[in-house]
Design a protein around this nucleic acid. Structure first.
Lengths: 200, 200
DNA sequence: AAAAATATGTAGACCAGTCTATTCTTCTCT
DNA sequence: AGAGAAGAATAGACTGGTCTACATATTTTT
């Protein structure tokens, strides 16, 4: 059974996540998190005795989960790697547009803001990225790409999407995401034959 | 002649830029900027009466200039688009490694942190990105790519590098940048013939 | 009753921004 | 060329507000 405390804790993490997406980590005050979540103020340090960093870490983990789920669910319906990529980008475009370009990737912000100062948060971001690159790599391997190539492609695709989210948001225009979907989509649909030739 | 005031103002912007790269925009206090620059606090609001936003805007513009210069200078020596891209990535890897992965792209952080709250800073970031995509597009057009394709490629390359910087930094490992250099480098070196075929 | 969870207040540091006073530069006028 | 006025630049304290974090007390749940 879900206790009251667990719900409060969850709400705090969800609010932290949303606020980080809109204002970044440093720009998100704990008072604001408490207010936004509707959770009792005194409960924050009961559920997160290690403070803001612990809350941020959980938020990054939640974001990683969400995107991993999106990828896994979309992978089932997709006809090809390129099709999968384009579908995922469509969802990302929806997220940007629905929020009027107010929300970005929380993992990127935290990595950029806190990577130099908090080993804990930096690691959480690294794990999040790896948790996306890994499954994409396996997917591409399953589609016939040699593992090293698949790994390179997966890394490039994931970082490309991160960057395209940022550029799209700054310009309030999804061109960057559409370009990434098209260019990278075609790329991962190319038959892996010629790569093998260059490798053997 | 360079007046004392101009030097102070420049130092403030440079310090703001460095600090933003390490701690983000919200995480950078003006007291810290003043301290780091060696300039006095009284001078800050003399040179930047519009406050922190104006200082941040100038820092973003400076960063945009620096990267544009790097691109322009490298373009002269490069044998092919892929070669150019790989050289630029080598410099970025150097920046990351030399700073022990402490410094990131200031434009990305500002876009993510302030994009939703400051139209002024969001625009500055959009202009910065455009000031990179534009020249890259022209370069690719000069190398025979049809303009629409060149624009798509340039956008994907720039956002890919942004993302790869972030992922590399989070993981304290330049694999993401190397993958981007290899995958995107090969991509922009592909002869534009087949695109023209599909287009005519 | 015991434990879990919530409520409230507050300490101490830091934040962006403003103020007045003072010191340097530079230019004018003789 | 030299005095001195005008303005540029610097100095540093100060304000009202917010931040994280903690302490203590009260309520809810089991």
């Amino acid at each position: 059974m879900i206790t009251k405390g667990e719900r409060t804790s969850t709400r705090l993490v969800e609010s932290m996540l949303e606020l980080i997406q809109a204002r970044g980590y440093s720009g998100t005050g704990l008072n604001t998190v408490v207010e936004h979540s509707g959770a009792p103020k005194g409960s924050l340090y009961f559920h997160f005795p290690e403070g803001k960093e612990a809350l941020g870490e959980r938020a990054v983990e939640l974001a990683a989960d969400q995107f991993r789920t999106l990828f896994a669910e979309t992978a089932g319906d997709a006809a090809s790697p390129g099709d999968l990529l384009r579908r995922v980008v469509d969802v990302l475009i929806g997220l940007l547009a629905d929020s009027d370009f107010q929300l970005g990737c929380p993992v990127s912000v935290v990595a950029l803001e806190m990577g130099a100062h908090s080993e804990r948060l930096r690691t959480a971001c690294a794990v999040a990225f790896e948790s996306w690159i890994g499954p994409v790599t396996e997917y591409l391997v399953g589609r016939g790409h040699p593992r090293p190539t698949a790994r390179s492609l997966a890394t490039t695709v994931v970082s490309g999407l991160e960057g395209a989210m940022i550029v799209s948001r700054a310009r309030r225009d999804v061109e960057a995401l559409r370009s990434a979907a098209q260019v990278l989509g075609d790329l991962v649909d190319q038959p892996p034959a010629n790569v093998a030739k260059g490798n053997s």
